[in-house]
């Protein structure tokens, strides 16, 4: 055996366990999913044995599927709530922490900690906080004579359901953005602020003219991962609203938090439409890839 053949064999032996799992569970599924999306389950007791080839039927059906279009709209709405709110909270926390203070790292840990916890479980806790009649948030608002959400709770009222889910998610996950912003702030040269102070700029002006523009790459990154996270949103919806509460749109009952990730889960796990769910997965994949490409373009022009 020549030396290079042996070297290659040794290297691939080290790679083997990783590659075996990767190829089976991360690579092959892309194509298997496409295969499934051309099929329809006909027998729930023999899902794989009796699958029927239906060609592009699932995709044609997708185009006429009001639930899907509505879910994409709700995903957009969810993203439009979570992303700006998440950026604002992350930035506010980072600005508070961007000072040399005793106990700084203690506060940093406290803000980051919720990010490592399971969204589903955190959602279950928020259900209690948001609950109707006796929920702590409703009781607090009663002190200010606000009783709009008393009857149905924040998650049961079509107007407040999505914002309530978004707030729960933002408070859980802004520690992540905060750390990114803090790292970027540490890289801003103090001389810029000194020059601005000499020009007589106050705190808000320094923030607007120096800090915020220099943090733009982080903000852009937060927008991109925010859109992708919204497309994958599931646990918070499953924990808090299960897609509801229903609203009537042109005579049809549609869920006020019916996001695409949750619709995919329901199609697959509750309705057991494997083929159709695989087709929905492809919609998610294509949307994500479009966003990633746009993202790369944006970052490239940013650096040029």
């Amino acid at each position: 055996m020549t030396k290079t053949v042996r070297d290659n064999l040794v290297a691939y032996a080290f790679l083997a366990p990783f590659l075996a799992v990767f190829l089976t569970f991360l690579f092959y599924p892309i194509f298997y999913s496409l295969y499934l999306s051309f099929h329809r389950v006909t027998d729930l007791y023999d899902v794989f044995g009796k699958m029927r080839f239906v060609g592009l039927d699932n995709f044609v059906q997708l185009i006429h599927d009001g639930q899907l279009w509505w879910s994409l709209l709700m995903t957009l709405y969810y993203a439009a709530l979570v992303i700006p709110l998440g950026i604002a909270v992350s930035l506010a926390l980072a600005l508070l922490l961007n000072n040399r203070l005793p106990f700084r790292s203690l506060f940093r840990s406290a803000y980051f900690m919720p990010y490592v916890l399971d969204m589903f479980v955190v959602g279950v806790v928020w259900v209690l906080i948001y609950s109707p009649h006796f929920g702590v948030l409703n009781r607090l608002l009663l002190l200010f004579d606000i009783d709009v959400f008393l009857e149905k709770g924040f998650l049961g009222h079509p107007l407040s359901a999505m914002p309530a889910v978004a707030v729960a998610n933002v408070l859980k996950s802004s520690g992540f953005g905060m750390v990114l912003y803090l790292a970027a702030m540490a890289n801003i040269s103090p001389s810029l602020y000194e020059a601005a102070a000499m020009d007589g700029a106050d705190g808000w002006q320094r923030f607007r003219a120096i800090t915020f523009p220099l943090l733009k790459p982080v903000t852009l990154f937060m927008v991109i991962i925010g859109v992708i996270a919204a497309l994958n949103a599931f646990a918070e919806i499953y924990a808090m609203t299960e897609g509801g509460p229903n609203v009537e749109v042109r005579g049809r009952a549609l869920g006020a938090t019916w996001v695409t990730g949750y619709y995919l889960f329901r199609t697959f796990y509750v309705s057991l439409k494997l083929g159709y769910a695989a087709a929905i997965s492809y919609v998610l994949l294509i949307l994500t890839l479009i966003i990633s490409v746009v993202n790369m373009r944006l970052f490239r022009t940013e650096r040029a």
Partner: peptide
């Protein structure tokens, strides 16, 4: 995206 894998990984 992670959700993409739910159906095929389950099937496998």
């Amino acid at each position: 995206p992670g959700m993409m894998y739910m159906v095929p990984q389950f099937a496998i």
